[in-house]
Amino acid sequence: MLPPEPTATPDALFNQSLAKGLQVLCAFQAGHRSLTLGDIAARTGMTKASAQRSVHTLQRLGYIGKHPSTQRFGLLPRVVELGFNYLEAHPLIAAAHSYLAQLARDSGETATLTEHNGDHMVYLAQVLTTQHIPVLTPVGTQVPMYASSCGRAYLSQWPDAQAQPWLERMPRPARTRATLTQVPDILARLQRCRDTGYATNCEELFLGDMGIAAPVLNLRGQVVGAVHVAPPTSRWRMDDAQARLAPLVVECARAISRLAPL
Rank of each mutant, 00 (worst) to 15 (best):
L2E: 13
L2I: 04
P3E: 00
T7A: 15
A8F: 10
D11H: 09
A12P: 04
L13I: 07
L13D: 15
Q16S: 08
L18E: 06
A19Y: 05
K20W: 02
G21P: 00
L22Y: 12
L25K: 05
C26D: 05
F28D: 01
F28T: 07
A30C: 01
L35P: 13
G38D: 14
G38L: 13
I40Y: 09
A42M: 10
R43S: 13
G45T: 09
A49K: 09
S50A: 15
S50L: 06
Q52E: 11
H56V: 02
T57H: 08
T57K: 13
R60E: 14
R60L: 10
R60Q: 14
Y63I: 04
Y63R: 04
G65S: 11
H67D: 15
P68T: 12
T70E: 11
Q71H: 15
R72N: 11
R72F: 11
G74P: 05
L76K: 00
P77Y: 09
P77R: 02
G83Y: 10
Y86A: 14
L87V: 02
I93G: 06
A96N: 08
A96I: 02
A96L: 06
A96Y: 09
H97V: 09
Y99P: 01
L100W: 02
A101F: 10
A104W: 08
E109F: 03
E109L: 11
T110H: 04
E115I: 02
E115Q: 11
E115P: 04
M121W: 00
Y123H: 15
Y123C: 12
A125K: 01
V127K: 13
T129H: 09
T129P: 14
T129F: 11
Q131G: 02
Q131C: 11
H132T: 05
L136Q: 07
L136F: 08
T137I: 05
V139R: 06
G140S: 06
Y146H: 15
A147K: 06
S148N: 12
S149C: 07
G151C: 05
S156L: 07
S156R: 06
Q157M: 11
A161G: 07
Q162C: 05
Q164D: 08
W166G: 01
L167E: 02
L167N: 11
L167S: 11
R169S: 14
M170A: 11
P171L: 06
R172S: 05
A174Q: 13
A178F: 15
A178R: 01
L180G: 11
Q182H: 13
V183P: 13
V183T: 14
V183R: 07
I186H: 07
I186M: 03
A188P: 05
R189M: 15
R192A: 10
C193F: 09
R194V: 07
D195E: 14
T196L: 14
T200F: 03
T200M: 10
N201Y: 00
C202W: 04
L205N: 15
D209H: 03
M210I: 00
G211E: 05
I212A: 10
A213K: 07
V216L: 02
N218L: 03
L219V: 00
H228E: 12
V229L: 11
A230W: 00
T233S: 13
S234P: 06
R237N: 14
A243E: 08
L245Q: 14
L248I: 02
L248M: 10
L248N: 01
V249M: 01
V250C: 10
E251A: 15
A253M: 00
I256H: 10
I256Q: 12
S257I: 03
S257T: 04
R258D: 10
A260G: 00
